[in-house]
Design a binder for these strands. Structure first.
Lengths: 344, 344
DNA sequence: GTCGATCGTGAGAACGTTCTCACGACGCGA
DNA sequence: TCGCGTCGTGAGAACGTTCTCACGATCGAC
């Protein structure tokens, strides 16, 4: 007697297979004593439902595809992504769902992934990370009838569900904070402008300045990759153009850390000469000297939320576009004049 | 007529279901014309085998669990891990296998993962990354009869298959190179010593010194996390203790980059005053100023190799311990006196 | 005290594969 | 010509679930 089956559980409990199945699936229409004896039989035998048989019958795979349609380096430099993945992993595990990871870097691989995801019922739905704006994958999947939710802001034209952080609100809060600190010449280091998050954060920077009656100046904006090096190079360029900068809003912590190096190399002190605020509130923010003020966003919550939205779409079988925007919160630390211990 | 089944393909081809199945599975004992007409029917209908039905019958899940049993930050700071994952992903995709990702950070989650992986036939085998030495998971899985292969060097006592890079050989080459450059006071920044890779690279550093007739000096060793900050702090400590250091072997590129910052902050020039060699040859090595010499190891190859070893174990159904050690290669760039353009 | 509704239960048919067997056709040596 | 192995094929039974029906029992209402 190898792996116990439902049949055996039922026999041990003295009920039919159907009733045993009902107990396993938590049906309400089963008598108290039948339920108990089945539960006992399950516990004694260590019964676990056979996933394949269940899938065959229900026409559900009970698994969710997570697609990373990007060059590896771009996605993984930041711990950002790992945290989302963790949230997704936890969210799916809680519902006994498989996480099937699909990584596609080249267009060829992306086509393969598309075929894989749309045929054979391999997954019940897809969570997609596509950081560049022109990816056709979400549209394609959706038109083949498979539920999709995108992590982060999707390209404008795509009518697709997504979960995103409140990039605009967070960035506005950061810049407003710098203004409130009495800073006069506030620069920004933007992320890549082919990513929606990069564009949105820059827009928020401008909006916050205008809201305070100031006029954004393109000389005070400099872009780069979401990396430490990108931040460092951008900061150097900014200092060359505008030596009188007294505050910087960087679109990521990694960039802010790079900017910090450039500032020190140029002999500026932080926050005395230049105040700086980052974005993400990742571990990096705490490990710099001084600790970085940053906009907090919980990527793990984002992961869980992605799962929750996807399951809604799957269960409802509708084509409703669901949008979730997660709150962000400014955390003030020493790099922009917060107290030495840092709050929180 | 929804999704085409084997039955329908068979009917369209004018053969029995059994023969159609044989064609799908590449059996040799099927006549040429029957084969061709089945193939045509498959192409026309776009038939894809139903995974659940197949699994039910064959008692195989056709999926492989990839377990990351570590705190997220530790694993993902480095692009290291993403690359391995990519290799695994590609290797599995080529064989039409699912990649099921399991992330467990707490002991509680690890127990859950263990139950999940050992029961219900969810996966045919497991690829495991457990960076701290005392993880019982590989042993547990193995004793439950499920094939396991570990990425990186496993704890000593575990009799388990693994794929690892030649950490020792690579590190020896790095240190020997520094000696050949005429450096006299060669320090090392080690990784965490609860990770086998950290220990091995330090041991190799000592061995290389002894092989050159020198005596290792513990004052010239300083450890830290595999992060930029860890490298920076370690370098600062080393400089404080031994200001006359003229070369450093760092156990990772990230640490080397951190060391670079510390060296500049202390007014040393690289490679004139201090030569430095990293490990991993990741993208980071090319983005520092000057570019880092480093020990190259292809994590993507490691991923593919992990898949290949695991499949061997699954197919053979034996308990043979398989070990694969992948070649590493020293790449000399400017940071240790290589030519300005860098080779390769 | 009868009639319908409700509730718990069981019998049995799917779901789409793979795989064991058995069967006919064919080639070849005796 | 007979017998025997080989080769391609098909019929049909699994694999372990879920789910539709149908059936008997219990109960409240008239």
């Amino acid at each position: 007697m190898g792996i116990p089956t439902l049949e055996e559980v039922a026999r041990a409990a003295g009920v039919s297979r159907a009733t045993a199945s009902r107990v396993v699936n938590g049906s309400l229409t089963v008598g108290i004593e039948a339920r108990q004896s089945v539960e006992r039989a399950i516990a004694e035998s260590g019964y676990v439902p056979n996933r394949a048989a269940r899938s065959l019958r229900t026409r559900r795979s009970d698994s969710v595809g997570v697609v990373i349609a990007e060059p590896t380096g771009r996605v993984f430099g930041d711990p950002f992504f790992a945290e989302v993945l963790r949230g997704i992993s936890a969210g799916l595990a809680a519902r006994q769902l498989h996480l099937v990871l699909v990584m596609s870097q080249t267009p060829e691989e992306e086509r393969w992934a598309e075929g894989y995801l749309t045929s054979g019922g391999h997954v019940d739905g897809v969570i997609l990370f596509s950081l560049h704006g022109d990816d056709p994958l979400p549209d394609h999947l959706q038109s083949r009838g498979i539920p999709v939710v995108v992590g982060g802001e999707p390209p404008e034209r795509a009518r697709v569900s997504y979960v995103d952080n409140d990039n605009h609100g967070g960035a506005v809060a950061a810049v407003k904070h710098l203004i409130d600190q009495g800073r006069t010449t506030i620069a920004t280091i933007t992320g890549p402008l082919d990513m929606p998050a990069g564009v949105t954060r820059r827009q928020a920077y401008r909006d916050a300045l205008r809201a305070a009656g100031r006029t954004p100046d393109e000389d005070l904006e400099e872009g780069g990759e979401f990396t430490r090096e990108g931040g460092q190079l951008a900061m150097e360029a900014l200092l060359r153009r505008c030596p009188d900068i007294d505050a910087v809003f960087a679109a990521s912590d990694l960039m802010a850390a790079g900017a910090l190096s450039a500032l020190y190399a140029a002999g500026r002190s932080v926050p005395e000469d230049v105040a700086i605020v980052g974005f993400d509130d990742s571990l990096i923010a705490l490990s710099t000297q001084p600790p970085l003020s940053s906009v907090r966003q919980s990527m793990e919550v984002m992961g869980r939320e992605l799962v929750s939205v996807l399951l809604q779409s799957i269960d409802a079988r509708d084509h409703v576009v669901r949008r979730v925007v997660l709150e962000t919160k400014l955390i003030v630390r020493q790099s922009s004049g917060g107290p030495p211990t840092g709050n929180d």
